[in-house]
């Protein structure tokens, strides 16, 4: 996408990727093992364009590990990950960002010595065209683009309702706000698919509710596809089009929200305590 595409998306309220026959994101038989622990065991996973997909399961089920495999932080032992039909299993995380995969972290992923604004600016890294030399020697292009980067950062912050905090340092912010800033920063990378790892942690129930609305809104306005890990089952059931349930690294169930709702009893039988936490 071009550097201005986010602007465009914000203005038109519509930005759907080209129609393709491939699913947006497709993981096939992904397995990974840490020492004695099979963290993921032949997981199949698929996300179509414009969907909001939930990934649930008890603690230690391998949800974040799966995110790490998709975003390139872990290399799966076996299995492939494809993006719009292109095999991305061997790409570095930053190369995957270039393709349009954006993610947040379970524990706030921000640069903590930067202000809110600087965080959103640095996240636009790949949208900046000039090179290091141009920057250090002060080429006209670098000056012009820096203004653009700054404006775009303000735009994203405005969209997230964080404009008033632009110059704030992170240590003055609440946990919930930090999570919002993190989403703003990832939007700065101009993603097609947004992978959120427990976005509700640290939010009050009302705030969680509002964040659900915000996700639905982002899909409409920015044409985003969303994958979300969340423990809060009512939220997942409300927001998601499709849900995957992971347990001990294995796919326990998948389906549309009403199927999963019905399945929860079964899940409990498998997961015991974990399912209680889920419900």
């Amino acid at each position: 996408m071009s550097p201005g595409s986010l602007t465009l998306a914000l203005l038109s309220g519509e930005l759907m990727a080209d129609v393709v026959e491939y699913p947006l994101l497709h993981a096939e038989q992904v397995s990974i093992r840490f020492g004695g622990l099979q963290a993921l065991d032949r997981v199949d996973f698929q996300v179509n364009d414009g969907e909001i997909v939930g990934l649930i399961g008890p603690n230690g089920a391998g949800k974040t590990t799966f995110f790490n495999c998709v975003s390139g932080f872990y290399a799966p032992d076996t299995g492939r990950v494809a993006y719009r039909g292109r095999d991305i299993t061997d790409l570095r995380p930053d190369q995957r960002v270039h393709l349009g995969i954006g993610r947040t972290f379970q524990q706030v992923g921000l640069v903590r010595s930067f202000t809110v604004l600087e965080n959103v600016m640095v996240a636009q890294h790949q949208k900046v065209q000039y090179d290091t030399g141009g920057g250090m020697f002060g080429s006209p292009q670098s000056w012009a683009e820096e203004h653009l980067v700054r404006d775009r950062a303000f735009e994203v912050l405005d969209y997230m309702g964080l404009l008033h905090l632009a110059h704030s340092r992170l240590d003055g912010l609440s946990y919930g706000t930090l999570k919002q800033v993190e989403v703003a920063a990832v939007l700065g990378t101009d993603p097609d698919v947004l992978m959120l790892d427990e976005p509700l942690a640290g939010l009050s129930p009302e705030e969680g509710e509002a964040f659900g609305d915000r996700i639905l809104e982002m899909r409409e306005e920015l044409g985003l596809t969303v994958v979300v890990i969340e423990h809060h089952v009512p939220f997942v059931l409300r927001v998601c089009d499709y849900i995957y349930v992971l347990n001990f690294g294995q796919l326990l169930a998948e389906g549309e929200p009403h199927d999963i709702r019905g399945n929860l009893a079964v899940a409990e039988a498998y997961m015991g305590e974990g399912a209680t936490a889920l419900a």
């Binding site: 004695g36 622990l37 603690n59």
Partner: peptide, 11 residues
């Protein structure tokens, strides 16, 4: 921790 490679201590 939910996930991670910090499992080396097991052995």
């Amino acid at each position: 921790a939910d996930d991670g490679r910090g499992l080396g201590a097991v052995g």
